[in-house]
Design a protein around this nucleic acid. Structure first.
Lengths: 210, 210
DNA sequence: TTATATATTAGACCGATCGTCTATTTAAAT
DNA sequence: ATTTAAATAGACGATCGGTCTAATATATAA
């Protein structure tokens, strides 16, 4: 399925020099960036294509529709973000609650790096859900569920080491965490600084620690 | 400034039979509904006008631009929502924390009534801020500040009656509240049910009570 | 009555997309 | 040489964006 880079390919060669799967990947990456900054409806294929120097005529060679493209974009971001979460939340060298803080610091750096224009793709599309195809909605729900389980896991660890109140339900708390998190990211886009995220994290941790 | 309904007016009469300020108000109301459901960028003037039977040609008689119209819409919603907040949060017949719950119940009813398609105009536009004129951004910030002060006030009351932990900073907590709230409303749009809001409220109250 | 001021509307402007599709080009495989 | 596959060119028609000028309809003033 994946053509490697050196093997010659049949058919007209890509202007960009990339092979099929590389081009597809580049398009998805460009889509992630545009959809994260401007949302699905307000992002035109033209610009997404131009950013990676893929001609407009090629789009429907790579994807069946904008909707199908959106699915690939969401899945890619979901994968990327889950990996980032694991990187921090499964780091056994660090105490559970500190792992969550490390993740937050990582995300904060990303917010600054993109000048508070991007935020979280999933959170952004969530707001836009009334304009989205139904297929996207389900993907967003699945993604949140996955993220929630990862945070819940980490909170359970913290609970076992007695770092947080034992009476709290970690799944509920993780759900609560992500709602607040997305709210904080959105607010941070509005204020154009990190204080909302910091306020959220400090308050959240303060409220749950024993 | 306000023409009353009975006095005859100069100029061509409005097709709708409304006077100038009534038409303006109707347009703003329609704008609230569209912007809340679809956002600013994805809401066309055409539909906003059609909904209240105002001809397209009339728009620039009532507003200088779409941006100016947006400002009026945000201000109207902000006013409307502040009033709703006061209605609950200043109700001295009710205990402070219960007032917040009453507000939440009110909002939940609104979410259901509109089939989870609308949510909060301010929160929706907040996500869209990269597509918004700068004038709108400041209005959104001001609105959040106002709302925050109202919740902070109510939390201070709860603190005085010893209902919540005295060591918590009510302003910070109010800030935290609204971030979580907006996240919960967004999630509720996604799931199309009230559980996110309920989960948020239960968790929030559980975490802050003594 | 006529002229003027004001309020509202008609309707098109035109550029900018929008997502999509068919025909064509290029190159490898047969 | 012919076939098959990959990628591109380029425009398609439709919609719709916000905006503007000219026309219309009424109240008031002369």
């Amino acid at each position: 399925m994946n053509k490697n880079t050196t093997t010659a390919q049949r058919g007209r060669p890509a202007k960009s020099g990339r092979n099929s799967s590389q081009t597809k990947q580049a398009l998805v990456q460009s889509g992630v960036e545009y959809f994260t900054e401007f949302g699905f409806a307000s992002s035109g294929l033209d610009k997404i294509l131009k950013k990676v120097s893929v001609p407009k005529g090629s789009f429907y060679h790579y994807f069946a529709s904008k909707e199908a493209f959106g699915i690939a974009v969401i899945q890619e971001y979901s994968r990327y973000f889950a990996k980032k979460l694991d990187l921090h939340l499964l780091n056994e060298a660090i105490e559970p609650l500190q792992r969550i803080e490390n993740f937050a610091d990582d995300a904060k750096a990303g917010m600054s790096r993109h000048h508070f224009k991007r935020g979280c793709l999933i959170g952004n599309l969530e707001q836009e859900v009334t304009l989205l195809p139904e297929s996207h909605r389900q993907l967003l729900l699945d993604t949140f569920e996955l993220w929630q389980s990862k945070i819940a896991c980490c909170l359970q660890l913290a609970q076992r080491t007695n770092a947080i109140n034992g009476s709290l339900d970690c799944n509920t708390l993780a759900n609560f965490f992500w709602m607040g998190w997305e709210g904080a990211i959105a607010k941070s886009k509005l204020t154009r600084d990190l204080t909302p995220i910091e306020t959220f994290m400090v308050s959240f941790l303060q409220l749950i620690v024993k």
